[in-house]
């Protein structure tokens, strides 16, 4: 079951947008599928707070016991927070990728880009469901 409270990318990342102080802040993580595909995650490399990126820019990596996978930014914006807990305990990406295993937050520069992402139904179809 793919949660419908967020949008997805073909790179198997999710972004959940919430309004904070009048700004749109997107929380970003990887999906259950990505976490399962990678296997035991041993390291996450996250972008620096304050850095700005365009949509689809590589912004970090997730390393599991057998692969390093690049993270891409789902939508353009400035990084405003990173999840220190997941840096300290990378296994959170495996145990709870959609909640406690979130990676970083961005202040959306182009909220219209959300429309270019996949909704839950489209992402479910991508997974073959």
């Amino acid at each position: 079951m793919v949660p419908d409270d967020r949008m997805y990318t073909e790179d198997h990342e999710w972004v959940r947008v919430e309004e904070e102080d009048g700004e749109q802040i997107g929380m970003v993580g990887v999906t259950d599928f990505a976490a399962g595909e990678l296997g035991d995650v041993v390291f996450v490399e996250l972008p620096e707070i304050g850095s700005e990126y365009s949509q689809k820019d590589p912004v970090g990596t997730i390393e599991s016991v057998k692969a390093v996978a690049d993270l891409f930014l789902p939508v353009s914006g400035e990084v405003v927070a990173i999840n220190d807990a997941v840096v300290e305990s990378p296994e959170l990406v495996n145990s709870d990728p959609l909640d406690e295993g979130w990676l970083f937050k961005i202040r959306l520069a182009e909220p219209g880009e959300l429309e270019t992402l996949l909704d839950a139904a489209a992402y479910g179809k991508l997974l073959g469901g």
Binding site: E10, D11, P58, K66, A67, V68, A69, D70, F72
Partner: peptide
């Protein structure tokens, strides 16, 4: 062996 994965290629 070890892998690096980008979008659609490895």
């Amino acid at each position: 062996s070890a892998q690096r994965r980008l979008r659609g290629v490895f």
